[in-house]
């Protein structure tokens, strides 16, 4: 019984470490890709941004105001109910995309 417990702890520990490792390694890049409903809406080269500026994406389901800054990008305001995309704050690498599910909006950083 103890051996079984140990087996699962080791297996899950290794899987969690692999997952976390893959997530930390997958990243880097300066091109932010903003897509709405699977279609690329706009790309921003974050390394070329010198002064922060904002712009608003109008989707069929609502709007998101996005701020591009040198090396990072974030949603600063949106009319969605949960504000998850706003709470997430700025992203600067490809590890975790910003996703606004109600508006089908995704911001990813690649290349």
């Amino acid at each position: 019984m103890k051996r079984k417990t140990l087996f699962w702890i080791v297996l899950f520990g290794a899987l969690a470490a692999l997952g976390a490792g893959a997530y930390l390694l997958h990243g880097g890049g300066t091109r932010a890709v903003i897509s709405v409903d699977g279609q690329v809406w706009r790309t921003v080269d974050l390394s070329a941004v010198t002064e922060p500026y904002t712009f608003t994406v109008e989707t069929e389901d609502g709007w998101n105001t996005i701020q591009a800054a040198p090396g990072s990008i974030q949603v600063v305001d949106a009319d969605c109910p949960h504000q998850d995309c706003v709470k997430q704050g700025a992203i600067s690498d490809g590890a975790i995309p910003i996703v606004c599910l109600p508006h089908k909006l995704v911001i990813e950083i690649d290349e």
Binding site: L15, A16, L18, G19, I96, P97, K104, V106, E108
Partner: peptide, 24 residues
Amino acid sequence: AAIAVTGTPSLVWYGPALLASAIV
């Protein structure tokens, strides 16, 4: 569901982080 709703298959790269989170 997120991939289906947003139509963004590359969200699958978010999988490993979610796997680690689910285990903990």
